[in-house]
Amino acid sequence: MDFLFFDFLGKPVWMWLIFLGIVITLMIFDLGVLNKGNHELGVAESLKLSAFYIFIAVLFGGYIWWAWSNGTLVTTDGTNPVASYFQGYIIEKVLSIDNVFVISLIFGFFAIPRKYQYRALVWGIIGVIILRGIMIAIGAELIAAYDWVTLIFAAFLAFTGLKMLVTSEGDPDVSKNPVVKLTSKYMNVTKELHGEKFFIRQPHPASGKMVLFVTPLLVALIVINVADLVFAVDSVPAIFLITTDTFIVYTANIMAILGLRALYFALAALVHRFHYLKYALAVVLIFIGLKGFYSYFFGKFDPYLSLAITIGIIAAGIFYSLWKTRNDPPEGEIPAE
């Protein structure tokens, strides 16, 4: 059992296995219990499930505090792991709201019924766990070899935040997505869904031979995972400017993503109420970017102050959005004249 104490990316193997065990258990719970029978997840159930995932994330944050306080967990960069974990988790969670909007557009384009959406998102987390892990590992290696890479991350985040403040983006056209075009060109895609199946064998229209086809549900899943990579371009550098400890970066990211599936069904109906949150998030990205420059040249920024500023900005964006849109009709409803 000595291998459990081997160092892997700055932490003993047993610590990574505990986290992965939590993730796998939650996924089995999702697929085997919550989504048994492909029932539709209502808004009330979605909010309750989201609260459960937030509780699990906070509980894991408590574990990080306990491990840090007794010396079991020591960050590789000397930062406060508790403040770093929660700040990274909150930023990733807020960035997920934009992700929810894009996911709803993708499901709408492929006409995926709600009863199959949750199952697709559960399977999608497998791809996210792998792809985020690869991105975070590459980022950690780059920073370890060249610490000035953090300045590039800082400049990128500050620029992204400024761009979000001054530009207005329209709805993305899913039909022009290069992934959609590539799958349509190089894969046999059925025109209709086949329940929850990702693959199906049926006669090819040209040859009449039985060949393997992919369904629109799988194509939607691929597009969603590629979209997550695009969103990760913002979120991963942001948390690396908070801490370069790979374990904290990865766990904060994945904990936020795990709850996204449950939160999706509530936010998909309410996302229009959070219109002004985009500007609060832009300010947070600018703040994190500027903090990256400060930390590089002058030393670490107080972690609890950084966490408090992040929470304050995002809370202000949420309350202002809800107040400004308090009289707006629900999404898709025509206002009365």
Rank of each mutant, 00 (worst) to 15 (best):
G10S: 08
P12E: 05
V13N: 00
M15L: 14
M15F: 02
L17K: 02
L17F: 03
L17E: 02
L20K: 01
G21C: 06
G21A: 07
I22H: 02
V23K: 01
L26A: 13
M27D: 08
I28H: 07
D30C: 05
D30E: 15
G32Q: 09
L34M: 15
K36P: 02
G37V: 14
N38F: 15
H39L: 15
H39Q: 15
L41Q: 03
V43H: 05
A44G: 05
E45Y: 04
S46K: 13
S46R: 01
S50C: 06
A51S: 08
A51H: 06
A51N: 08
I54L: 13
F55D: 00
F55R: 09
F55C: 11
F55A: 14
V58R: 12
V58Y: 02
F60V: 09
G62E: 03
G62N: 02
G62L: 13
Y63F: 14
I64M: 04
W65P: 01
W66A: 12
W66Y: 14
W68E: 08
W68T: 11
N70W: 07
G71M: 09
G71D: 05
T72R: 05
L73W: 03
L73T: 01
L73P: 03
T76P: 01
T76A: 13
D77N: 01
T79P: 00
P81N: 10
V82W: 12
A83L: 06
S84A: 15
Y85M: 09
G88E: 09
Y89D: 07
Y89L: 14
I91G: 07
I91V: 14
V94H: 04
L95A: 15
I97C: 04
I97A: 12
V100F: 06
F101L: 15
V102M: 11
I103Y: 10
S104D: 05
L105Y: 05
F107I: 14
F107P: 07
F107H: 06
F109C: 05
F109P: 03
A111I: 06
A111F: 07
P113T: 07
R114S: 12
K115D: 11
Y116S: 02
Y116A: 04
Y116L: 15
Q117Y: 12
Y118L: 14
Y118Q: 13
